[in-house]
């Protein structure tokens, strides 16, 4: 099935992205002691191509520029060198077709769940259709009956679900998620992971997902890219074809896991 597409240009092309910035803090950062006004290279010549419909996972040590790279791909940040194209169009600004779920809470706390959903559903012009769609999406993420609640009245997991629903109702071609479940407890995280896989199977979209959890990436990713520490280069770019649900303890995945740990400078996979 992939033989047909492999001839064509990939949907998302990340071509030689380099990101540098001038250190503006007068107090040096602890990990690498960058001095004031020094040029810091965060991303160093990153080239990746991502096929349409891929569940793409980006892993790497903290501070390596994963979030910066994702923000550049989504058009929220601009690279120092290189370019990103999605469907052949160069990315220069954010677009309603490329929805970003940020690491921190992005629901508007002064709007109810329903009103937040309306922001995502603004492309549906007919008010009746819009209301029906909102109802459906909220039911899908298990939030039926919470329409008139405010975000602060929901648990952390419910807030994340509402935010994912708000992103999905915009029917994006690309969904960006920057460690979306990092703040959740373990069980909720596993559940959300599964729900994201289901959503990916149900909607025709490409997902770009950041995580620092290597097991999570191996569990859900069709393509896993490992970035090294700053200045970050692509250390590994792996395609996974194992069907879901995957057994993380299978010899193949265990070997990959060891390899990723090795690449990140952790010699024993604990």
């Amino acid at each position: 099935m992939e033989a047909v597409n492999s001839e064509e240009v990939a949907m998302i092309q990340i071509e030689g992205i380099t990101k540098q910035y001038r250190e503006r803090r007068t107090i040096p950062r602890t990990p690498d002691h960058t001095k004031f006004n020094e040029t810091v290279t965060v991303l160093d010549d990153i080239t990746i191509s991502i096929e349409k419909g891929t569940f793409f996972c980006l892993v790497g040590p903290s501070g390596c520029g994963k979030s910066t790279l994702l923000r550049i791909i989504a058009g929220f940040d601009s690279p120092t060198r290189g370019r990103v194209t999605i469907d052949g169009m160069e990315i220069t600004s954010p677009s309603p077709e490329h929805i970003f779920v940020f690491q921190e809470d992005g629901l508007y706390p002064w709007l109810t769940v329903h009103e937040n959903m309306e922001i995502g559903a603004k492309r549906i012009e007919d008010p009746v259709n819009r209301a029906t769609a909102i109802e459906e999406y909220l039911e899908m993420v298990g939030l039926a009956g919470f329409e008139s609640h405010y975000p602060h009245q929901l648990s952390g997991g419910m807030r994340r679900r509402a935010e994912v629903a708000r992103a999905l109702i915009a029917s994006p071609k690309v969904l960006f998620m920057d460690e979306p479940f990092g703040a959740l407890d373990f069980a909720t995280r596993l559940q959300m992971r599964e729900e994201m896989l289901n959503a990916h199977a149900m909607f025709p979209m490409t997902i770009l997902f950041i995580t620092h959890d290597i097991d999570e990436a191996l569990q859900i990713g069709d393509q896993v890219v490992v970035l090294g520490s700053r200045p970050s280069k692509v250390k590994m770019d792996i395609k996974l074809h194992q069907p879901h649900p995957r057994d993380i303890a299978s010899p193949e995945l265990a070997e990959l896991r060891r390899e990723i740990y090795y690449q990140l400078g952790l010699h024993t996979a604990l």
Binding site: A74, P94, S95, I99, F100, E104, G106, I119
Partner: peptide, 10 residues
């Protein structure tokens, strides 16, 4: 983030 989300949804 609030501003970015607004820009994102157009």
């Amino acid at each position: 983030t609030f501003i970015r989300v607004a820009e994102n949804f157009g």
